[in-house]
């Protein structure tokens, strides 16, 4: 799974690519957490345009990143979520805690 990072004007953006599962999630979570700790952004964006599949491991990635940003007093938004990941997030009521925007 690929993780591209871009930091601009206090916004830390992660563009993920590939399938998010238990195998890939641990590495992705570590990369995201390390980068947040290094940059201390006010806003974090997870761009999931390149993620065609996730299982419940993706929920843990969103919730952990949300918690991490909240601890820093910042915010998380999740963008470009495809239909399958959106269905998984909805099934777990993730939207209650983390707003996510679906691909139209």
């Amino acid at each position: 799974m690929s993780v591209q990072t871009n930091f601009e004007n206090g916004e830390l953006r992660f563009s993920l690519g590939g399938e998010l599962d238990h195998h890939s999630a641990r590495d992705v979570m570590r990369k995201i957490a390390d980068e947040i700790d290094r940059r201390l952004p006010g806003k974090c964006v997870l761009d999931l345009a390149g993620v065609g599949f996730t299982d419940s491991s993706g929920i843990a990635v969103l919730l952990r990143t949300h918690k991490h940003m909240r601890e820093l007093g910042g915010s998380l938004s999740v963008e470009n979520v495809h239909a399958q990941p959106a269905k998984v997030f909805r099934a777990a009521n993730v939207g209650k805690m983390v707003a996510f925007q679906e691909v139209r």
Partner: peptide, 22 residues
């Protein structure tokens, strides 16, 4: 049960709920 997990912080405890729901 939803959210029950013994798998630690990187697990969501939603595995069986997903299987059941999907």
């Amino acid at each position: 049960e939803p959210m029950f997990t013994t798998g630690g912080e990187d697990r969501s405890g939603m595995g069986f709920s997903m299987m059941e729901g999907f």
